[in-house]
């Protein structure tokens, strides 16, 4: 049984209009997304802005009401409204946000920020609580002098580590990290990513790692799902996605990543333009008449691609055509 299972998740936003403000149409922010995360594993959810990746995260932790579908944590359905269920879920699933400054209460000291989830879920006395907070700070490499400071006093990277410490406080099973390093400088990003990996090793935590940065996702996630227009167009292991991408959108995304390879940049650009051209001309082949991706087809044990029915059969031995 998977730790987290997301089944046929749909989040539609109504577009209202007309004299009586009736629902005219829907924005299909998330439209039939399926995935599962095993214990101690990281799933990378990749997509460009508007692909529905953040909406998916919000729907899992209940910040956004799903239109349809269900989310299971260790086999228990989360989308039910029971109260006890909710408290349990809040404890088991924690979140790290992109903007660490606005997600930490500026009027609270670090001690209180980290202790808050502890106070909600655990009955600790003052001393126990302080020891626990110090342990948590230590895990993310911050010393006891951080306790009484306010979030503004810390740099972006430190704040993001405080966010990690807070997320870990309740011993969650899953942490949803929504663009956790996008606002950080390269060297600071490295630090935060290292701590996230360390915590995963120590506590056997699972991550849903949401990012637009494929390089970071490759580093963090052993399984990756590519989201486009509210649907998953391709999912598989790191190797499947990076070495054997099959969907035109995945290939286009990979080709667009800037490479640190000055000698071959003209080659790389030519390759990218070729794929871009292919994307423009053959797009209709990969999407149905509404511009939505097709259902996923299994092409290997781990690899799923949203291929159109006519391509799905002949394509399974054709993989690895694109390498870069």
């Amino acid at each position: 049984m998977s730790l987290l299972e997301v089944k046929d998740l749909e989040v539609h936003f109504p577009i209202r209009g007309g004299f009586f403000n009736r629902v005219k149409d829907n924005v299909l922010a998330v439209d039939g997304v399926n995935f599962s995360i095993e214990q101690g594993e990281t799933l990378g959810l990749v997509g460009e802005s508007g692909s529905g990746k953040s909406t998916t995260a919000k729907a899992i932790i209940g910040l956004e009401k799903p239109t349809a579908g269900s989310v299971f944590l260790e086999g228990k359905k989360l989308t039910k409204k029971s109260r006890r269920n909710k408290a349990e879920m809040v404890r088991a699933i924690q979140m790290i946000f992109q903007d660490s400054l606005s997600s930490l209460n500026p009027r609270k000291r670090i001690e209180d920020i980290i202790a808050e989830p502890l106070r909600n879920f655990e009955k600790l006395n003052k001393d126990q609580e302080k020891i626990r907070v110090l342990q948590l700070l230590d895990i993310v490499g911050l010393g006891p002098d951080a306790l009484y400071k306010y979030p503004r006093r810390f740099s972006g990277g430190q704040r993001q580590r405080i966010g990690v410490a807070r997320a870990v406080a309740t011993n969650p099973k899953l942490i949803i990290a929504d663009e956790p390093v996008s606002a950080l400088d390269l060297s600071v990003q490295a630090q935060v990513l290292n701590f996230m990996k360390k915590i995963q090793r120590e506590f056997d935590i699972s991550y849903l790692f949401i990012s637009h940065d494929l390089g970071v996702v490759r580093h963090m996630a052993n399984k990756i799902a590519i989201l486009h227009r509210g649907r998953i167009v391709e999912s598989g292991t790191r190797d499947d996605i990076f070495n054997h991408p099959q969907h035109i959108y995945t290939r286009r995304l990979l080709a667009a990543i800037p490479q640190i390879d000055v000698e071959n940049r003209d080659k790389h650009k030519a390759e990218r333009l070729k794929i871009e051209h292919e994307y423009q001309t053959e797009q209709s082949k990969y999407y149905d008449q509404n511009g939505m991706a097709f259902p996923l087809v299994q092409v290997s044990d781990t690899h799923f691609v949203a291929l159109p029915p006519e391509l799905a059969h002949q394509d399974s031995n054709n993989e690895g055509a694109v390498k870069n």
């Binding site: 060297s187 990003q189 490295a190 990513l193 390089g215 970071v216 490759r218």
Partner: peptide, 23 residues
């Protein structure tokens, strides 16, 4: 050199990234 080294690299996913000391 440090900057280049702290970038996530291909085929080193299991290693820790290089972190520059201090701020």
């Amino acid at each position: 050199r440090s900057l280049l080294r702290s970038m996530p690299q291909r085929n080193s996913e299991n290693d820790d990234l290089y972190v520059i000391n201090g701020t």
